[in-house]
């Protein structure tokens, strides 16, 4: 999940996927999933290439991309933090995880979810199904449970150290 902020789209990669996955309308979701797993989001150039080189129309591509919460049209940080907002996590303090992590990543603008240095993006996700370990977050691929706000900060700092990232508000 280590992606640079602005993705450089190579047309042959996209065309390769259309070839492999298919260019009919039922391939829309898997195609967009492939693009997003490569770039971390759906870059405009990639969307254009899909629309021009398959049977998928612009309205369908963007219709699907904006309907499903998994898809992002904005670039993301090099790592993604997913904070679970299932019921169990909600009643046991998922909000506090968000506040504490936004704090040490120095994200204060409410519209923003990515740290300014491009290190981490914080996402809220629907239930990831670890309700008995609530509250839960996923940093890159690591699922972490039973967190307090402070424990979430410690986990993030550890992840940052291991991945040569700088967490701005080191305490």
């Amino acid at each position: 999940m280590e992606k640079a902020l602005e993705a450089k789209v190579e047309p042959e990669v996209i065309l390769g996927w259309i070839e492999k996955i298919g260019g009919d309308s039922s391939s829309t979701v898997p195609l967009l999933q492939a693009v997003q797993s490569e770039y971390g989001y759906l870059p405009r150039e990639a969307m254009d290439l899909i629309i021009q080189n398959s049977d998928i129309t612009g309205s369908q591509a963007y219709g699907v991309a904006t309907f499903y919460s998994q898809f992002r049209l904005k670039p993301v940080g090099r790592h993604i933090i997913r904070i679970c907002h299932g019921t169990a996590c909600h009643v046991s303090g998922a909000d506090r995880l968000k506040t504490s992590l936004r704090h040490i990543l120095n994200i204060s603008d409410e519209e923003q979810d990515t740290a300014e240095n491009g290190s981490y993006t914080i996402e809220e996700v629907a239930c990831i199904g670890c309700c008995s370990q609530a509250p839960v977050m996923v940093v890159s691929e690591d699922v972490l449970g039973n967190l307090s706000g402070a424990a979430a900060q410690r986990a993030l700092k550890k992840h940052a150290r291991q991945n040569d990232e700088i967490v701005t508000n080191i305490l």
Binding site: V29, P30, V64, F67, Y68, S69, Q70, A126
Partner: peptide, 8 residues
């Protein structure tokens, strides 16, 4: 397998 894309 069809993977969902996040829609309840």
């Amino acid at each position: 397998i069809k993977e969902g894309a996040g829609a309840f």
